[in-house]
């Protein structure tokens, strides 16, 4: 290896370091046959994979074959070159968050949340906002120092911003679950543009959903993005930390 000493090359780890073994599964729109199996192998070859093992070919209907494949990927990634913008969230507890708001902000923090556009799936926004919360972590409604308005599903961008203005919201939370044909991106981008035009971009804008990460959210113009597994207290901490930072300025 001739890479500079600071580089840190990583390959997929199957059974031994740097063996590059990976598993993948996919469907080809052809009936299961010896020809289909060979087509699957070549498909993997075209992906640049080697030592290809088609572990199974399953007839997933008359005209479709489903494959599970193991193969070696030669490629390596230099970890030292990987930089990911991550949301930095302080490790504050429920109690600490409420105490910080009470002592340093001195009024309730107002949060408005919704699933926007045609999205009817409130699971995500409910997990963060509803009293019950998620995975044993209480939702923002349970915080005495948060005032929460969960507008529910299929909320129009303009309606969300109007409510946020009426309520003098500190933060706007948007959940996007449906991702077919990137509808989540278009809709979220449109929200931020509208907020800019209406002079509401000073509010904090947070985006959440199973296919959302911080980088994507930033790209779409949000302050932060939260992906799957996010706990309500992380969102609460982020909002409070941002508000404190702005106060400090």
């Amino acid at each position: 290896m001739t890479a500079p000493s600071s580089s840190h090359l990583v390959r997929a780890y199957g059974d031994r370091r740097d063996d590059g073994r990976i598993q993948l599964s996919f469907t080809l729109p052809v009936p299961a046959s010896a020809r289909a199996r060979e087509a699957a192998r070549r498909f993997c070859e075209a992906l640049g994979l080697r030592h290809i093992l088609v572990a199974t070919m399953e007839p997933a209907g008359r005209d479709f074959s489903f494959f599970v494949v193991y193969a070696s990927a030669e490629v390596a990634v230099d970890l030292s070159q990987v930089e990911v913008p991550e949301v930095t969230v302080p490790q504050w507890s429920f109690k600490e968050i409420n105490q910080l708001i009470r002592e340093r902000i001195g009024r309730k923090v107002v949060v408005v949340g919704a699933c926007t556009g045609s999205d009817a799936h409130t699971v995500g926004i409910d997990a963060i906002l509803n009293m019950k919360g998620y995975a044993g972590d209480k939702g923002l409604e349970a915080y005495p120092w948060f005032e929460v308005h969960n507008l529910g599903a299929q909320v129009d961008n303009a309606v969300l911003l109007a409510r946020a203005r009426e309520l003098s919201a500190d933060a706007v939370l948007v959940s996007q679950i449906i991702t077919q044909r990137d509808v989540h991106k278009d809709n979220s981008r449109a929200l931020i543009e509208l907020a800019r035009r209406q002079g509401q971009r000073k509010m904090l804008f947070l985006l959440g959903g199973p296919r959302i990460d911080h980088a994507l959210a930033r790209e779409l113009g949000f302050d932060a993005g939260f992906g799957p597994g996010t706990r309500p207290h992380q969102v609460a901490s982020y909002i409070v930390a941002q508000l404190l930072e702005r106060q400090g300025r």
């Binding site: 007839p59 997933a60 209907g61 008359r62 005209d63 045609s118 009817a120 299929q154 449906i178």
Partner: peptide
């Protein structure tokens, strides 16, 4: 329709076509 056929061939008894999300409204 293609996926319904494939699902039936793979053993499904019942196929539901989910509606577009905003249709109920």
């Amino acid at each position: 329709a293609d996926q319904a056929r494939a699902a039936a061939e793979a053993g499904a008894d019942i196929v539901a076509v989910i509606r577009s999300t905003a249709q109920s409204l």
